[in-house]
């Protein structure tokens, strides 16, 4: 198994898994704790619009996706808080608008779009050095922000009104964290694609939540579970020749089921 690591594509994939596990472990916990999972879904799918435009104009898809993800994150926030649109509706608007724009620009480009499947379902085995650089930067920002401001982020997430009554910088952090979430989501689509990435942000957290209840331990456990799930999923997909993104998601789901089973067995043995 170790000898696979001498291949550049495989060691790149492992590095991508590590960086994604860290950023998704942290941001996913934040998103789950604040019940923002479907905002995450909206951002993810909206980013496809940027991929389409980037593909049409011939620049890096990750840049296009990043711009669209951040715009849609701010757009959802703005529609909901200033535009008096109900949150789930504004998520749906951005969700499908992004996908529509993506499809239109891909159709406008002559010829078959060879990478379409990898954008939709991910391909961790084709991760390149520039992708790793983006992932590294985004993971570092995430770790730093949560390491320094953990207490404040917990307070704002738990009771926004109380935080406001104490004159804490609530709006600034809400915007900053939604932008960081958008960036984490976009870099993570390299692993499992636009359609499957939501699982990377929720499955490790749900599994962690079976065993731990505090915000901090949820983040640590999610990182470990995500890492273990992604690397084992990667190996399984390599040896079975199955699509990597989908295999990773199924592996993470199996971990979740296993976690529930272990918990149930413990409960039985205690009684």
């Amino acid at each position: 198994m170790i000898e696979l690591l001498q291949y550049d594509f495989f060691s790149n994939a492992i590095l991508a898994a590590i960086l994604t596990a860290v950023s998704c472990g942290i941001i996913g916990s934040y998103i789950v704790a604040r019940r923002m999972v479907f905002i995450g879904g909206g951002i993810t799918h909206a980013s496809f619009g940027g991929i389409g435009i980037a593909y049409f104009l011939g620049f890096a898809p990750m840049i296009g996706a990043g711009v669209f993800a951040v715009l849609s994150a701010l757009g959802i926030h703005y529609f909901t808080h200033k535009g008096k649109v109900r949150e789930d509706s504004s998520i749906a608007i951005w969700w499908s608008l992004g996908m529509a724009i993506g499809i239109i620009f891909i159709a406008l480009k002559p010829g078959y779009a060879p990478n379409l499947m990898s954008f939709l379902f991910g391909s961790i085995l084709t991760v390149m050095k520039t992708d790793l650089l983006y992932m590294l930067v985004v993971s570092l920002i995430t770790v730093l922000v949560f390491a320094i401001f953990f207490r404040l982020i917990t307070m704002i997430s738990f009771d926004e009104e109380f935080a406001r009554a104490r004159s804490l910088p609530v709006d600034f952090f809400n915007y900053m964290l939604i932008i960081i979430s958008a960036l984490v989501i976009v870099t993570s689509t390299r692993v499992s694609g636009v359609i499957l990435v939501l699982s990377l942000l929720t499955l490790p957290q749900a599994t962690a939540n079976i065993f731990v209840q505090s915000f901090r331990s949820m983040m640590w456990f999610s990182i470990l579970i995500g890492l273990f799930g992604m690397i084992s999923g990667l190996y399984i997909s390599y040896y079975t020749n199955l699509p990597s993104g989908a295999t990773i998601i199924v592996t993470l789901t199996a971990f979740f089921a296993l976690g529930k089973l272990i918990k149930a067995l413990f409960a039985v043995s205690k009684n």
Partner: peptide, 27 residues
């Protein structure tokens, strides 16, 4: 008004009452 399923312990809820305008980084 609270999300009662938010992952936070009782003691951390109590401690959060200390946070103020200029006091939000220090542990």
């Amino acid at each position: 008004k609270f999300d009662s399923r938010f992952p936070i312990n009782v003691i951390d809820v109590v401690l959060s009452g200390l946070a103020g305008k200029r006091n939000w980084v220090k542990p």
